[in-house]
């Protein structure tokens, strides 16, 4: 079955850890997309994943189409603009 690939644009520590500005992964919601991205770039797990290994730790958040969200069930599609950033987005 065809699974569309979604681009995640990385900022800050995720970009430095991954060594790239973008990761492509599959997933219909942020939770699956995130797990697949971590499988693709395992070094992310050392820095941005919670102690249960299930989701982002307290330092990070997603921004989907300009909206901040920490909901792993948040729907995403190939047209979505998905950013992974520090939760402390300001100064």
């Amino acid at each position: 079955m065809y699974k569309p690939r979604i681009k995640i644009e990385l900022f800050g520590t995720p970009r430095m850890v991954a060594g790239t500005r973008r990761i492509e992964a599959t997933g219909e919601d942020l939770g699956t997309l995130f797990q697949n991205a971590c499988n693709k770039v395992p070094s992310l797990r050392d820095h941005i994943v919670n102690s249960e290994g299930t989701w982002l730790n307290a330092g990070y958040t997603f921004v989907v189409d300009g909206q901040f969200t920490n909901d792993p069930k948040h729907y995403v599609d190939p047209e979505s603009d998905v950013l992974l950033v520090s939760r402390a987005s300001g100064g």
Partner: peptide, 8 residues
């Protein structure tokens, strides 16, 4: 992780 951005 809450302050990782500032440290790193």
């Amino acid at each position: 992780p809450e302050t990782a951005k500032y440290r790193e």
